[in-house]
Amino acid sequence: MESHRHPSERPLPPISVYLYVGAILIIVTAVEVAAFYLDVPSYVLIPILIVLSLMKFVLVVMFFMHLRYDHKIFSSVFILGLVLALGITLGLITLFDNFDVGNPPVAAAPTPIPTITLATPAIPGGGVDPNLPAGAQAFLNRGCNGCHVIEGLPGAVGVVGPDLTGLAGRAGDRVPGLSAEEYVRQSVEAPQDFLVEGYDNLMLPLRDTIGDEEFESLVEYLLTLR
């Protein structure tokens, strides 16, 4: 009854091999779970878990799915998919973890950025004015101006979010028990915590993507708006 196997394929193993592999799979899973409950640091545990689960993966594919015995074309088409899937998954994780999206490099001394000729440039003059306070530059560089109005700040024209003109004067009264500074800080760090009536929860939580220095300057600037 081996007639369906290709001449170049190796004969299938005896049943005892399947039972051994099954036993190994169970033991490895038990080791994984046990390791999970041991008090080992994550930089030790996570590589161990990954190696162990890779081992299980390979065992099932080689013995239960017969790739160890079957023709190499079967292995090739599967491994092609597997490698690409792994590549895309790791590529995306790397891109999102290391190159925080929305975090363009910040020049030490901002110079005017040339823009494509648009009908109405978002910022008159085409760049961020280097004479503005650092926090105001951050406000413009981070695109906050696309959603918030601040009277007197050129380019701060968006109407999706609340008008921030005179923010410092009312921030302290917004939430009982929070000072103006605490309120502004938390509003930037966790925009969904305090929604202004009539506005949706649309603001990006940008705190993770900007540096401490820039964040402090932004808070400092917002607290000057009287």
Binding site: L95, F99, V101, G102, N103, P104, P105
Partner: peptide, 8 residues
């Protein structure tokens, strides 16, 4: 142009 940074 979405700002992946210079390395990417």
């Amino acid at each position: 142009t979405v700002g992946l940074g210079p390395v990417a």
